[in-house]
Every structure is written in C-alpha cells, then in structure tokens.
C-alpha cells in the first residue's frame, strides 16, 4: 500500500530525512517512534505530496507528486497541531472539510458524535481546548472514509479517557482493514496495537527489535 524508497528530504543545509526505505502493507498499522525533530512529521508530509523530496514514494501505486489529488483522496491526515481555522465554528469547519473531501455533512456529524464533540457544534474552533481540537482533527481525518490514515501525535493533549477511546477507535479501524501510520514520541501508545514499529532518529529509519529498546532509542 505504501512504498518508500531512498527518500531524502533537505531543508537548505539541514537533512530532515536521509535514505528512508519503508514498506507498509494494506491493512497494516505502523508505529513511527522518534523524538521531536527526528523527522516523523516530515515523512508524513512527504507521503502526502505536500513537500518536494528525492527518492520514490508510492501510495496505492500512485506518486504523491504526480497524482497528489488522487493520493490525498485516499489519505486521512491528522496533523500534530494546528491546521484548523480558529475563527470558524466547529459546524463551519465540518461543512468546509466535508465538502473538500466529498463527504456528506451528515457523516461528518456522526464522526463528531463518535469523538464526543457533538455539543460543541457552535463553538469557535479557537475556543476549544487542546484535547477538543485534537478530537476534531481526528474526526476530520476520518472524513470521506480514507483507506490510509496518517496520524501525527494523535494522543498528544488528550486525557487518559479520551486517549483510550481514540486508541479503541483505531483498533476498530484496523479491523476494517485501514492502513495506519501513527507517529508518536510517547510511551503511552502501546506497541501491541501496531503490526510493526520503527524508530526514526535524525532523519533515518532505524531497524530495531524488542519493546524496551525501541523506547530507549526513541528517547521518549
């Protein structure tokens, strides 16, 4: 489903990713572990085709740079932070992004109810707490029933209860056969929910084995 070969991304003199190789099969859940600044978010943005890069990426056989629209139609993305318009209400945000993703507003409302934000429809996004904003972002990532989910630090800012609910939802999505890439620097995301995990360090994907060593290398 996702194939990455010799991926290198430089921002001026800074090498954010170097010779990254990755293969994620359909229905697999891959955990990307790494400290802040390791390159996890940059990797996700390259997969979306919103950054230029050297190397090859294929999502469901498509090149994100040549077929960006089609690739992003298949992907639900949850950014690490921000991404939402503070001056819009939750309702307006749902309408806007559901239109963009070709989803119905009703399905968007259902997703909002699932993340327990139904009561906040008329609240301004800028007035939501960090956790509520995170839940809204998660609901938006599921709009349009995407085959692939790229989630950047999805459990940051969530309280324990919300975190458990989100992880349960991810397990349900796994069972439906979605391909999930989940990036985190936190030990709170259990390795057990992932098919595999890799550690990203200074722009390189490091092959590791064993749970304790993974977290040590990720400097969590």
């Amino acid at each position: 489903m996702i194939r990455v070969e010799n991926l290198t991304k430089r921002f001026g003199r800074v090498t954010a990713l170097e010779d990254v190789r990755l293969d994620v099969a359909r229905g697999e859940t891959l955990l990307l572990l790494g400290a802040n600044g390791a390159g996890k978010s940059t990797l996700l943005r390259c997969l979306l085709g919103i950054l230029s890069y050297q190397g090859t990426i294929r999502i469901d056989g498509l090149d994100p740079l040549a077929n960006g629209r089609e690739v992003r139609r298949r992907i639900g993305y949850m950014p690490q932070s921000g991404g939402l318009y503070d001056d819009l209400t939750v309702r307006e945000t749902l309408r806007f992004f559901s239109e963009l993703r070709g989803a119905s507003y009703e399905s968007a409302r259902e997703l909002l109810e699932e993340v327990r934000l139904g009561a906040a429809l008329d609240a301004r996004v800028g007035d939501l707490s960090g956790g509520m904003g995170q839940k809204l972002a998660f609901a938006l990532a599921l709009l349009g029933d995407p085959k692939v989910l790229l989630l950047d630090e999805p459990t940051a800012s969530l309280d324990a209860g919300s975190r458990e609910r989100l992880l349960s939802k991810l397990v349900a999505l796994q069972a439906e056969g979605r391909t999930i890439l989940l990036s985190t620097h936190s030990q709170r995301v259990p390795l057990a929910m992932a098919s595999r995990a890799v550690s990203v360090e200074e722009g390189r994907v490091v092959a590791v084995s064993g749970e304790s060593r993974l977290y040590v290398d990720a400097r969590a």
Partner: peptide
Amino acid sequence: DRGTLDFLLAQPLSR
C-alpha cells in the same frame, strides 16, 4: 503563518 496551509494542502485538491 497560522499553520493551516499544510492541512489545506493535505486535502484532495491541487495547489
């Protein structure tokens, strides 16, 4: 500046 551009670009629309 607001950080909304990347999320917008991540939607199924061309630049």
